[in-house]
Design a protein around this nucleic acid. Sequence first.
RNA 1: GCGAAAGUGGCGGAACUGGUAGACGCGCUGGACUUAGGAUCCAGUGGCUCGCGCCGUGGGGGUUCGAGUCCCCCCUUUCGCACCA
Length: 850
Amino acid sequence: MPYEPGKIEPKWQQRWAGEKVAEVDVADATDKFYMLNMFPYPSGDLHVGHGRNYILGDALYRFLRMQGRAALNPMGWDAFGLPAENAAIKRGIHPGEWTRNNIIREKEQFLRWGILYDWSKEIASCDPAYYRWNQWLFLRLYEKGLAYRGKAPVNWCPGCQTVLANEQVIEGKCERCGSEVEQRELEQWFFRITEYADRLDAGLDALAHWPEKVKLMQRNWIGRSIGADVEFPVPSLGRPIVIFTTRPDTIFGATFMVLAPEHPDVPDLIRDAAGREEIEGWIVRVKNLSALQRQSEQEGKEGRFTGKVAINPFTGEEIPIWLGNFVLPQYGTGAIMSVPAHDQRDFEFARQYDLPIRVVVAVDGVIPDPAAMTEAVSNDGVSVDSGLISGLQSPKAIETIIDEIERRGIGKRMVRYRLRDWLISRQRYWGTPIPIVYCSSCGTVPVPDAALPVELPLDVPFTGREGNPLAMVASFVDVACPSCDGPARRETDTMDTFVDSSWYYLRFISPHDDERIFDTALVNRWLPVDQYIGGIEHAILHLLYARFICRALYDMELVAFEEPFARLFNQGMITKEGYRDPAENMTWVPLAEVEFRESMPYRKGSGSRLVPEIGKMSKSRFNVVPPDDLIARFGADTERVYTLFIAPPEKEAAWSDEGVIGAWRFLNRVWAAGEQILTLTDDESDPAAARMIRKTHQTIDAVTRRIGRFEMNTAISAIMELSNSIGDYLNGGGRSRPDAGGSYRTLLQLLHPFAPHVTEELWEMFGRAEMIVTSRWPVADRELMQEDVVTIAIQVNGKLRGEIEVPAGSPEEMVGSKAKAHPKVAQYLEGKDLVKTIHVPGKLVNLVVR
RNA sequence: GCGAAAGUGGCGGAACUGGUAGACGCGCUGGACUUAGGAUCCAGUGGCUCGCGCCGUGGGGGUUCGAGUCCCCCCUUUCGCACCA
């Protein structure tokens, strides 16, 4: 009987679902393991590369289950978002319907991959039963002052017609559509994540099982830096301007000051300036530049002199106040003291506008000549010409000068962050309505808890024109004020979808509870999440927001932990090499098509040329491998085995259509071996099987350890070795049914997490009543693992010269003398003095001669 | 520019605390079975000599009986941040 995955796979998928193998009663569990794949967005384009993290998670789940752990593996849908709304505009289909269809398709795909999720815990963020708790959470944050409305310069994407969070602006462009992002001043809702900057930064240290890379990215994003705020008196204003610096030890070298054009004191400073109109024109120009242009290097530094001066509080000198495009209004105080000798940006600005440069730090005893300097010297050193800190090393100088600043009452120690508050408003339809009402007499009024959810109306015009479609629905907008019952208007902004995903992992524990957001007692028993699996693309956005919301909930005493995810694993992307046709931009040409085109003489060398390229598997680039084609040909098990065998899961891996065949052959060999073992008639144990049995126990040990360390590729290669070993026994004439069958059933169990369907089928063919997925993971017998004969490598002066076989545990003298007797080795010893013998038991002997 | 990670056969990749480099698989070569096969099975497969042997983990130095692994210098690639004071 041949191996036919198309016949056996649907059968087992039904049985697992019918017996609810993945369902976990969270109330009863004691020894818990909560694993989680990142909240997927149902875009309907699941493909082979995309499946890697789900397949990885499922292998881990099946392994834990067989080990007797109560493992929870839930799945839900991050169902709100812009693509659904764009699809509505483009195809005239409602976003909800588009999303629902995708969910059905992707769920079917999970089933075909043989992935076991606890579907009794399924959630979808577009369900009012879910998003009402987004609104509830918003109201709690609002009460605490952690949600606020403010006018702020925001990133506006003209393509998506909405504002974007800082985190969604990549190199000045929209993360989603790639349009250049503009700056606009708008009233927006924010979450005050900056309140938690310090705790979010400090908490990273405790995350021992997170990739260093992710922690570093978060650390850089939070951008904590320590320094001082210092007041510089400005006589013409009659009040000081405060600057922030991380190098207060260089204050004696501060020869001018630069303000951001947006700095609030600018209008007063330039009121009577010569050339005021030109300066104002310049300010408007700088403000209107897109984030991309403002940040690009080519723009260069540009500034204007205000005509006013400030007093350097330590030198007492008057220093000019400039405006500069390189000073950012959002960071620090939007004003800097410029020390051109010791800061590269200040140096460039000083050279450009011929401003004085004064050296106040000697590095390695060298005091550079300002006139000859080509760049700033920003290293630590010893302060010079700096009054009370002269002669001090930089760290000590910084401490001393800050103490003096505080003593004089002109400033203080200050920690600043790069992190900005989280902008959650979206002028879009397909999201959670913000539960706020504007009343002409009561002002901004939160919707009472009892009135939740504020439901998203379903009948909405999708015109694609600027503005939020929700604002055009009178029945939604017009509402009675919850406070005075007078006429009022609803907020029409909806929430960023990252709000949905910032707490969903808590909802999985009690997904149907309509009394509260989640069951605190159960959550505290199951969480933090033991193992979170997802892509690196969420290193700062989602993972930072989730850590923030978890802390906010902790402070509300709704959860007892501050970190939501104990272990994080970032799977690498699957890439695929192919050919791109530059004539049809972004079109990915399959290899078969490439061969066809090359074979056509009239196309060769003419027309468009195909460019070989390696890219990530993505639908937008047409280089996906559709899972259905592959499953139809080789089955889901082959795909699963290959996907995990191809490379370590954290690494990026190149998909190879030829490579898949290896996994297919392997499963066929396993199948054939099973059929052969079923025909064996010998009931006796066979001494010749010792090798195979030893290998079996070694493999149990290896596979168990490797799955636990996510080394799925080497776990599979170990199983292949065992399969080869069983094959050797059978090919060598081995006839013992108990020996071969015992090793073989172990093989099936070890293989089950990777190839669940075929192993279930073979397990059943071997007469097991219980499903393999509910069988107990094998335990290695240490004694049976031991080799009785070991091969010892013999080196002479570190070079391999021969091998001998000795019984395991042979004494050193015996191994040594046997090594010397080896004919080839003896040849190298002749006429030499044996200086030293190194013996590594069970491994090698190194004979050092002179 | 700053920061991080990684360089091993034709390819994907193994090698736990320094201890026989190349496990496992793809590809390739030869053979078997076949009308045929791109299906299956068996054998071989780092390079040079193809005899003993020599050389081999990006390059150069070092430590050691012994280095892919540890230390120093350099090169390359990938990723992240990018005027954050």
